[in-house]
């Protein structure tokens, strides 16, 4: 089988799958690499209520499956391997995985973001033993237990509400005096009797023998520390873009997000970026899908101009 493609897509979240759908439907020979979860972070989201076309909401897993099915219908090859290196310099872009080397006329980077890890004393040893980054994966382990959610953005507050299905009490710990989540999400949290808040606060330590039993919470204004007994800690304190493969090769902002023009082309012709990995992205599934579509259309135009 030939390893030459029109388009290679790195990342199988909503941006990558939408890019695949558009590229495949344009009859471009397309391959998509995903190392972990088809659907990306969206696939572990409980209910997505704001993706148009699903008035009842849809689980992230189901939406991801539908997107995968739709891309594959247009002959996009899915490759569950990790891209280990990429050479973007020549007219043909090269990508390497443990299985082989592939070339393409255009590349779409849709590698997304990963959650920032909790960086406090005691946390490393207790990850997976009470510290979690996925409420839909681990929520049921905390039936009738007290848990904490760290962070004040949409993910944090939405997942806190989800966790009230299981936990006896959910405490949101946020470093500022106000949450950042959308108002509709905040209102739901305020109305939920199981949810309470520790604002102006950060976690300064985690303790437990074999699993989490307590945390130390520090008030950032007063400096005061107190110990709180909890068995679960769900962490949603931001994201890191998955762009290490392209460091030095592509223009990025200080945090590592890829900078593109309006057509989503990055600083090297023929290289496009879409979804959460791109600077100024809204971090919404609908936005990621739209960017995937645009990146694929731009890639097609680029390929035409090269021929």
């Amino acid at each position: 089988m030939s390893n030459e493609y029109d388009v290679l897509i790195i990342g199988g979240g909503p941006a990558g799958l939408a890019a695949g759908l558009y590229a495949g439907r344009s009859m471009l020979k397309t391959k998509l690499f995903e190392k972990e979860l088809i659907g990306g972070q969206a696939s572990i989201t409980d209910i997505i209520e704001n993706y148009p076309g699903f008035p009842e909401g849809i689980t992230g897993f189901e939406l991801a499956e539908k997107m995968r099915e739709q891309a594959q219908k247009f002959d996009v090859e899915l490759d569950m391997n990790e891209v280990t290196s990429a050479d973007l310099s020549g007219p043909l872009k090269k990508v390497t995985t443990p299985d082989g080397e592939y070339t393409a006329k255009a590349i779409i980077i849709a590698s997304g973001v990963r959650p920032t890890k909790l960086d406090v004393p005691g946390a490393a040893a207790l990850t997976g033993r009470g510290i979690s980054y996925c409420a839909t994966c681990d929520g049921p382990f905390f039936r009738d237990k007290r848990v904490m959610v760290i962070g004040g953005g949409n993910s944090a507050v939405e997942e806190a509400i989800y966790l009230t299905k299981f936990a006896s009490k959910v405490t949101i710990v946020h470093r500022r005096d106000q949450l950042r989540a959308e108002k509709i999400v905040q209102d739901r949290a305020f109305k939920n009797e199981k949810v309470d808040f520790l604002l102006d606060s950060v976690l300064s330590g985690v303790s437990g023998e074999n699993s989490v039993s307590a945390v130390t919470v520090k008030n950032v204004k007063t400096g005061e520390e107190k110990e709180v007994g909890v068995e679960g800690i769900f962490v949603f304190v931001g994201n890191i873009p998955n762009t290490e493969l392209f460091t030095g090769a592509l223009d990025m902002d200080e945090a590592g997000y890829v900078i593109t023009d309006d057509a989503l082309m990055a600083s090297i012709p023929g290289v496009f970026a879409a979804g959460d990995v791109r600077k100024n992205n809204l971090k919404q599934v609908v936005w990621a899908a739209a960017e995937g579509a645009l990146a694929a259309v731009s890639a097609e135009k680029f390929i035409e101009t090269q021929e």
Partner: peptide, 19 residues
């Protein structure tokens, strides 16, 4: 399956899956 065998999951402090 941790739902069917919660005691074993508990015995090994499995609180994130897949472990």
């Amino acid at each position: 399956n941790v739902d069917d065998s919660p005691r074993i999951a508990g015995q090994f402090q499995v609180m994130s899956i897949p472990t």
